[in-house]
């Protein structure tokens, strides 16, 4: 009988030791991170390629959601699984000198190569039409007001811009470059906007010729298409990750 007791006891002791020893024994290659995202503006004035100097007096821009991807292309069909995201829409004053909070980035550590995002108007998988988020200014992605000057000519304009996804289940900008290697939550994401550059392809000569003051740019017009080219191709958002104090 004693034999039995000794055997069972030693067995239980070993099991107990193992259980304790295993408590901290986990090695992982990726961890969950969460950090702040802010919108930062750069240079409210810029030359357009046809010689006009554009100055904005108002730029209320809806930003988000943002999905960051480890793949080279962030498109929803090539990147079904994001490495990080900002799952919300924030309307910022793009002319504010100080960084505006954009919400929190939630995701995992690792390499980021691309991003896929909207300007407040999304067409998620389960929505039958592109839908603006409730907080959008007038239901539009952005409201811009400003003037363009070339020599003695002055054009003042307002623009309601809708950046709309092309197909159901896609983002308005289905892919854009965003390179980073995120190690921990001691990070901050800066989304850099250069709003005046969004008007680089606008034909102000033609607008000046119409003589309308202020010239209202509405969705569906050629000038609206030019602003979309500015937003997507000529002066796109830039994404910078910087070190920050751990939260």
């Amino acid at each position: 009988m004693k034999h039995h007791v000794v055997l069972v006891r030693s067995f239980v002791v070993v099991a107990g030791v193992l259980a304790v020893a295993l408590a901290g024994c986990v090695e992982a290659s990726q961890e969950a991170v969460a950090y702040d995202a802010v919108a930062v503006s750069r240079d409210a004035a810029k030359d357009t390629s046809s010689g006009w100097i554009v100055t904005l007096s108002r730029a209320d821009v809806a930003l988000g959601p943002f999905y960051f991807c480890a793949a080279a292309s962030g498109s929803s069909t090539l990147c079904a699984s994001s490495i990080a995201e900002v799952a919300g829409v924030t309307v910022v004053n793009a002319l504010a000198p100080a960084p505006s909070p954009l919400g929190r980035v939630h995701g995992f550590s690792g390499n980021v190569q691309s991003v896929s995002y909207d300007f407040g108007i999304s067409w998620f998988d389960t929505q039958t039409a592109a839908t603006p988020a409730p907080s959008l200014p007038g239901g539009h992605s952005m409201r811009l007001e400003g003037e363009a000057r070339k020599g003695a000519m002055l054009v003042s304009f307002t623009a309601d811009v809708d950046v709309v996804p092309q197909y159901q289940g896609q983002n308005a900008l289905s892919t854009a470059s965003a390179i980073a290697s995120v190690e921990s939550s001691a990070t901050r994401l800066e989304v850099v906007l250069h709003p005046a550059g969004w008007l680089r392809q606008v034909d102000f000569d033609a607008i000046a010729a119409t003589g309308k003051v202020p010239f209202a740019i509405r969705p569906g017009s050629a000038e609206h298409g030019a602003i979309l080219v500015g937003i997507k191709n000529l002066s796109p958002l830039e994404f910078r990750w910087t070190a920050a104090a751990a939260p």
Binding site: V164, S174, A176, D203, A222, E223, G225, L228, N233
Partner: peptide
């Protein structure tokens, strides 16, 4: 100019480079 030749919509010019 794409603005007149490739109106958006129906075009989506994401990822077109200069």
């Amino acid at each position: 100019d794409v603005v007149t030749a490739l109106p958006q919509p129906p075009y989506d010019l994401t990822a077109v480079k200069d």
